[in-house]
Amino acid sequence: MKILVAVKRVVDYAVKIRVKPDKSGVETNNVKMSMNPFCEIAMEEALRMKEASAASEVIAVSIGPPQCTETLRTALAMGADRAVHVDAGTSTVYPLSVAKILRAIVELEKPGLLILGKQAIDDDCNQTGQMVAGLLKWPQGTFASKVILDKERQVATVEREVDGGLETISIDLPAVITTDLRLNQPRYATLPNIMKAKSKLIKKFTPEELKVELSSDVEVVQVTEPPKRKAGMILSSVDELLDKLKNEARVL
């Protein structure tokens, strides 16, 4: 069974982002970019499945500008066998288009499992996995914190992080799984593996070749900074704190 893992290149999670003065978006030039943390977890999970002989091949796929190949190299250095890059140029690709492109790749590669992160930490959408699953009519196991594959029965048991606790479901393969933070601890790529990754294959497509039109029915009107909180004060004792909460903030 092949496993397809979708990875996204985003502004590094530790970077304090800056909104552009013209309100057109967030500054991404000369900002450190990395693989989305949830995608790293997705990649790690796929690699562990392969190491447990539950999968034969792990394919990483990324959609976006030419620099996405760096993200794919990271995935290859972690241990992915090969990669697919759908070059969308400079245009913004919204989740619905991403989902349609992923569907096209799934139809080409015919994987038994598609793993994604539960959300990208830039747009915070939390949509793509659910949308591909819907388009493919595959079952979905979102926000997974534990996945057990049963190769014989072609079933995955997925433990999901939900509002009230942990939910366990069983889904038939092929399926879509999206990862939550606690699924695993992603590995670091070692230098030899980074070198090896350079010789691995990255296949290129354009959205047109996959017959996906990059139109969107949402448009970003503006991006602004959130309102700033007014400066707080440092107090000296618990008594003072209780006094402030009671008489100034009136929340007790």
């Binding site: 304090k16 982002i17 909104v19 967030v26 009107v221 991006v223 602004t224 959130p226």
Partner: peptide, 10 residues
């Protein structure tokens, strides 16, 4: 977006 560090009007 970006963990609440920007607000996006769509």
């Amino acid at each position: 977006i970006y963990a609440g560090n920007a607000l996006c009007t769509v």
